[in-house]
Amino acid sequence: MLIRLVEHIDLNEAFAYLNSPMAGAVNFFIGTVRNQTKGKEVLHLDFEAYDAMALTQMEKLANIAMHRWPLVGVAVIHAIGAKRPGTPVVLIGVSSAHREASFEACRFLIDELKKSVPIWKKEYFEDNSVWVNAHP
């Protein structure tokens, strides 16, 4: 498993890691920075992680996926630091013999990462900044 917190996400490195003669399918989800929230222009996002716990939780999710589906490889990579619109900030990569397993595991991993991995983003607008999701 490739589990990382990085400054810049390297798609080629993830593909090289996942690609295998045993895998007929490599599935990627790449989350990027959107340029607006509720119609307001986003200048940049700032990602912060509780590094040790984030890596522990990302690894735990990857292990669950490896047990639940017949996978060849799993990559879970999240970027930290300041990121401008269009930048990849999270990559989930899954390889498997057939495509069903990698599609399903990929969806599971990004959904669960967003629920439980201790990473936070702050949105910076022209006139203010907010921690996303903090308040009801």
Binding site: A49, A54, V90, K114, P118, I119, W120, W131, N133, A134
Partner: peptide
């Protein structure tokens, strides 16, 4: 550690 609502991804 205190973990406020997460917002990764």
């Amino acid at each position: 550690a205190l973990i406020p609502p997460v917002s990764g991804g």
